[in-house]
């Protein structure tokens, strides 16, 4: 099993060359590190929304509590969709790196459909809540809930748009190295959204059950 970097850069005498003496970093290192910093700052945004939710989760203003309005079955299906799409996204990246065009299109399609299924379920949940009168204006708890989960949904939606753009780029430019680098950034973004969703389903949905 790999994925880790088991590389050792050595000179002609077999001695390891220190990182500081290997010349400028590669384009790949710089891009992946820069994108990693973007993702971390994005996660800090989510942290502030999580903090807001944690502070306001009991401020129901006489309205419903989370236990009364959340449907855990729906949340479980959403979680499965996102986890499966994270996995197929990894397979998509492997296919892209091996320049297997057909596999790439297949896994990109599966990833997109699973992500779209997640968004579909979330939109259904939101519209159902609003139809029952429990919109974001109902209480501070619901405002915080819609902001946190809605921001995550917006990120997933923009990820779906990004994936469409990437498929269009592969179709026109082919799997050249710049395109594969962008696909790599997309996969990091997609995995990070799944990471945030772990926090959402644990704190927002499961945390409300036994309160």
């Amino acid at each position: 099993m790999s994925g880790g970097v088991n590389t050792a850069v050595v000179d002609s005498h077999g001695r390891p060359i220190p990182l500081s003496e290997r010349g400028p970093a590669s384009t790949w290192s710089m891009i992946s590190f820069g994108f990693w910093l973007f993702l971390l700052s994005d996660i800090v945004i989510f942290a502030s929304l999580f903090a807001t939710y944690a502070v306001l989760s009991n401020a129901t203003a006489g309205g419903p509590t989370g236990q009364q309005i959340f449907d855990l079955k729906n949340v479980f299906i959403e979680t499965c969709c996102l986890l499966a799409s994270s996995f197929t996204c990894g397979l998509m990246l492997i296919a892209a790196e091996r320049r297997q065009l057909r596999n790439f299109y297949l896994w990109a399609l599966v990833t997109w459909l699973l992500g779209a299924g997640f968004i579909g379920l979330e939109v259904t949940e939101f519209s159902d809540l609003v139809a029952r009168g429990y919109g974001p204006t109902h209480s501070a708890f619901l405002s915080a809930f819609f902001t946190l989960v809605g921001t995550h949904g917006c990120h997933v939606s923009s990820g779906l748009l990004w994936l469409l753009v990437m498929v269009a780029q592969v179709a026109t430019l082919g799997l050249r190295s710049t395109v594969v680098r962008r696909l790599f950034c997309f996969s990091l973004f997609w995995h990070a959204l799944d990471l945030v969703w772990i926090g959402v389903f644990t704190i927002v949905y499961l945390g409300s059950v036994h309160v």
Partner: peptide, 10 residues
Amino acid sequence: NRHAINRNPR
């Protein structure tokens, strides 16, 4: 190793 976030591209 191509997709590891910090893999060595050399």
